[in-house]
Protein backbone atom coordinates (compact mmCIF):
# COMPACT_ATOMS: atom_id res chain seq x y z
CA UNK A 1 0.00 0.00 0.00
CA UNK A 2 2.28 2.75 -1.14
CA UNK A 3 1.27 6.34 -1.21
CA UNK A 4 1.25 6.25 -4.96
CA UNK A 5 -1.34 3.55 -5.17
CA UNK A 6 -3.58 5.17 -2.55
CA UNK A 7 -3.32 8.54 -4.27
CA UNK A 8 -4.08 7.01 -7.63
CA UNK A 9 -7.15 5.24 -6.39
CA UNK A 10 -8.42 8.28 -4.56
CA UNK A 11 -8.09 10.51 -7.54
CA UNK A 12 -9.45 7.85 -9.88
CA UNK A 13 -12.58 7.27 -7.86
CA UNK A 14 -13.11 11.01 -7.52
CA UNK A 15 -12.70 11.47 -11.21
CA UNK A 16 -15.10 8.73 -12.20
CA UNK A 17 -17.65 9.73 -9.63
CA UNK A 18 -17.54 13.35 -10.61
CA UNK A 19 -17.80 12.39 -14.25
CA UNK A 20 -20.90 10.35 -13.61
CA UNK A 21 -22.37 13.22 -11.70
CA UNK A 22 -21.67 15.55 -14.58
CA UNK A 23 -23.54 13.47 -17.09
CA UNK A 24 -26.31 12.22 -14.92
CA UNK A 25 -27.10 15.32 -12.99
CA UNK A 26 -30.34 17.16 -13.52
CA UNK A 27 -29.19 20.54 -12.47
CA UNK A 28 -26.89 22.12 -15.01
CA UNK A 29 -25.05 24.26 -12.52
CA UNK A 30 -24.35 21.29 -10.34
CA UNK A 31 -23.03 19.48 -13.37
CA UNK A 32 -20.60 22.30 -14.01
CA UNK A 33 -19.35 22.20 -10.45
CA UNK A 34 -18.87 18.49 -10.61
CA UNK A 35 -16.93 19.00 -13.78
CA UNK A 36 -14.61 21.30 -11.91
CA UNK A 37 -14.11 18.57 -9.35
CA UNK A 38 -13.40 16.10 -12.14
CA UNK A 39 -10.82 18.41 -13.67
CA UNK A 40 -9.06 18.82 -10.36
CA UNK A 41 -9.04 15.06 -9.89
CA UNK A 42 -7.46 14.79 -13.30
CA UNK A 43 -4.77 17.18 -12.16
CA UNK A 44 -4.18 14.82 -9.28
CA UNK A 45 -3.76 11.95 -11.69
CA UNK A 46 -1.19 13.98 -13.56
CA UNK A 47 0.64 14.48 -10.32
CA UNK A 48 0.86 10.73 -9.75
CA UNK A 49 2.42 10.56 -13.20
CA UNK A 50 5.14 13.03 -12.22
CA UNK A 51 3.74 15.57 -14.67
CA UNK A 52 3.66 18.51 -12.28
CA UNK A 53 3.67 21.15 -14.98
CA UNK A 54 0.76 19.60 -16.76
CA UNK A 55 -1.12 19.36 -13.51
CA UNK A 56 -0.58 23.00 -12.86
CA UNK A 57 -1.67 23.94 -16.37
CA UNK A 58 -4.71 21.74 -15.95
CA UNK A 59 -5.79 23.47 -12.80
CA UNK A 60 -5.11 26.90 -14.14
CA UNK A 61 -6.59 26.63 -17.57
CA UNK A 62 -9.22 24.00 -17.20
CA UNK A 63 -10.51 24.29 -13.72
CA UNK A 64 -9.96 28.00 -13.74
CA UNK A 65 -10.60 29.16 -17.26
CA UNK A 66 -12.97 26.69 -18.78
CA UNK A 67 -15.25 26.47 -15.82
CA UNK A 68 -15.47 30.20 -15.64
CA UNK A 69 -16.36 30.32 -19.29
CA UNK A 70 -19.03 27.69 -18.93
CA UNK A 71 -20.53 29.41 -15.92
CA UNK A 72 -20.78 32.60 -17.85
CA UNK A 73 -22.32 30.73 -20.71
CA UNK A 74 -24.98 29.35 -18.42
CA UNK A 75 -25.65 32.74 -17.03
CA UNK A 76 -26.24 34.12 -20.48
CA UNK A 77 -28.34 31.35 -21.88
CA UNK A 78 -30.51 30.16 -19.07
CA UNK A 79 -33.30 32.13 -17.65
CA UNK A 80 -32.20 32.24 -14.07
CA UNK A 81 -35.04 34.26 -12.89
CA UNK A 82 -38.11 32.30 -11.95
CA UNK A 83 -37.07 29.09 -13.60
CA UNK A 84 -35.13 26.15 -12.32
CA UNK A 85 -32.06 25.21 -14.23
CA UNK A 86 -32.99 21.76 -15.36
CA UNK A 87 -32.62 19.57 -18.34
CA UNK A 88 -33.71 16.05 -19.00
CA UNK A 89 -31.61 13.64 -20.84
CA UNK A 90 -32.84 12.01 -23.99
CA UNK A 91 -32.16 8.69 -25.64
CA UNK A 92 -30.49 7.41 -22.55
CA UNK A 93 -30.76 3.82 -23.48
CA UNK A 94 -29.17 4.11 -26.89
CA UNK A 95 -26.38 6.35 -25.69
CA UNK A 96 -25.77 4.19 -22.66
CA UNK A 97 -25.62 1.10 -24.77
CA UNK A 98 -23.07 2.51 -27.17
CA UNK A 99 -20.97 3.97 -24.38
CA UNK A 100 -21.03 0.74 -22.42
CA UNK A 101 -20.18 -1.34 -25.44
CA UNK A 102 -17.36 0.98 -26.35
CA UNK A 103 -16.05 0.81 -22.83
CA UNK A 104 -16.11 -2.94 -22.86
CA UNK A 105 -14.31 -3.12 -26.16
CA UNK A 106 -11.69 -0.64 -25.13
CA UNK A 107 -11.06 -2.44 -21.86
CA UNK A 108 -10.70 -5.73 -23.59
CA UNK A 109 -8.29 -4.19 -26.02
CA UNK A 110 -6.30 -2.73 -23.23
CA UNK A 111 -6.13 -6.00 -21.36
CA UNK A 112 -4.68 -7.79 -24.37
CA UNK A 113 -1.29 -6.40 -24.95
CA UNK A 114 1.57 -6.57 -22.48
CA UNK A 115 1.84 -3.16 -20.93
CA UNK A 116 4.56 -1.72 -18.79
CA UNK A 117 3.98 -2.14 -15.09
CA UNK A 118 6.65 0.11 -13.65
CA UNK A 119 7.54 3.63 -14.48
CA UNK A 120 10.99 4.07 -15.86
CA UNK A 121 13.28 6.31 -13.96
CA UNK A 122 13.26 9.96 -14.72
CA UNK A 123 16.38 11.53 -16.08
CA UNK A 124 16.12 14.99 -14.70
CA UNK A 125 13.21 17.34 -14.29
CA UNK A 126 10.32 16.77 -16.66
CA UNK A 127 9.30 20.36 -16.56
CA UNK A 128 12.72 21.53 -17.63
CA UNK A 129 12.68 18.92 -20.38
CA UNK A 130 9.34 20.09 -21.58
CA UNK A 131 10.35 23.70 -21.66
CA UNK A 132 13.44 22.87 -23.65
CA UNK A 133 11.63 20.79 -26.20
CA UNK A 134 8.89 23.39 -26.51
CA UNK A 135 11.39 25.88 -27.74
CA UNK A 136 13.54 23.51 -29.76
CA UNK A 137 11.73 20.54 -31.17
CA UNK A 138 8.24 21.91 -30.99
CA UNK A 139 8.87 25.52 -31.81
CA UNK A 140 6.71 25.53 -34.85
CA UNK A 141 3.64 24.01 -33.21
CA UNK A 142 4.18 26.38 -30.34
CA UNK A 143 4.06 29.40 -32.60
CA UNK A 144 1.16 27.99 -34.55
CA UNK A 145 -0.66 27.51 -31.31
CA UNK A 146 -0.27 31.17 -30.65
CA UNK A 147 -1.75 31.94 -34.05
CA UNK A 148 -4.55 29.54 -33.33
CA UNK A 149 -5.34 31.30 -30.09
CA UNK A 150 -5.42 34.58 -31.93
CA UNK A 151 -7.83 33.16 -34.49
CA UNK A 152 -9.97 31.75 -31.73
CA UNK A 153 -10.01 35.11 -30.00
CA UNK A 154 -11.06 36.87 -33.16
CA UNK A 155 -13.67 34.30 -33.95
CA UNK A 156 -15.20 34.31 -30.55
CA UNK A 157 -15.40 38.06 -30.39
CA UNK A 158 -16.93 38.12 -33.88
CA UNK A 159 -19.52 35.58 -32.84
CA UNK A 160 -20.41 37.34 -29.72
CA UNK A 161 -20.61 40.84 -31.17
CA UNK A 162 -23.63 42.83 -30.23
CA UNK A 163 -26.56 42.54 -32.55
CA UNK A 164 -27.05 45.36 -34.96
Amino acid sequence: MTLEIVAFWAFAVTLVGAGLAVVLGKNLFHSVLFLALALIATAGIFLTLDAEFIAAVQVLLYAGGVITLVVFGIVVTERLVGEKLSHVSRHVAAGGLVAAALAILLLRGISHGPLATTKPGLAGDLTRQMGTSLLTRFTLPFELLAVLLLIGLLGASYFARPED
Binding site: V98, L102, I104, L105, L106, G109
Partner: peptide, 13 residues
Protein backbone atom coordinates in the same frame (compact mmCIF):
# COMPACT_ATOMS: atom_id res chain seq x y z
CA UNK B 1 -21.68 3.31 -33.12
CA UNK B 2 -19.57 3.27 -36.24
CA UNK B 3 -16.47 3.14 -34.12
CA UNK B 4 -17.92 0.15 -32.31
CA UNK B 5 -18.61 -1.62 -35.55
CA UNK B 6 -15.19 -0.87 -36.87
CA UNK B 7 -13.52 -2.13 -33.76
CA UNK B 8 -15.55 -5.28 -33.71
CA UNK B 9 -14.90 -5.89 -37.37
CA UNK B 10 -11.17 -5.51 -37.40
CA UNK B 11 -11.02 -7.57 -34.30
CA UNK B 12 -9.33 -5.11 -32.03
CA UNK B 13 -11.03 -6.39 -28.98
Amino acid sequence: FGLLVLMAWIGVA
